[in-house]
Amino acid sequence: MNRENRRSTMKREDIEAKIVDAADGRLSEKERLELEEQLRAYPGLLQSYYDIMNLPDLSSAYRGCWQIETTSEFMEFLRILKRRILKREQ
């Protein structure tokens, strides 16, 4: 990879990381507007930016799921683990 290509790849990676920061809500309004301005030079990335910003909240996919509702499941897990540890140590 020549120097120009490497620089271009690095630049793209930096912008991708900035888009992730924007999606995570880590950029200030000013920083977000600056990023959008910068993205006008990269139409493909600008589209990705809009798509990513419009994604639903990913954590909502698993909200409220898989809570250990009773201790019995955990106790059973511990009982088996204990037995296996003892077996290995004998």
Binding site: E13, E16, A17, V20, S48, D51, I52, N54, L55, L58
Partner: peptide, 13 residues
């Protein structure tokens, strides 16, 4: 972060 970008991009598609 680059993987997170690709993941979100693929999810959007």
């Amino acid at each position: 972060k680059n993987r997170m970008f690709r993941a979100r991009n693929e999810l959007a598609v």
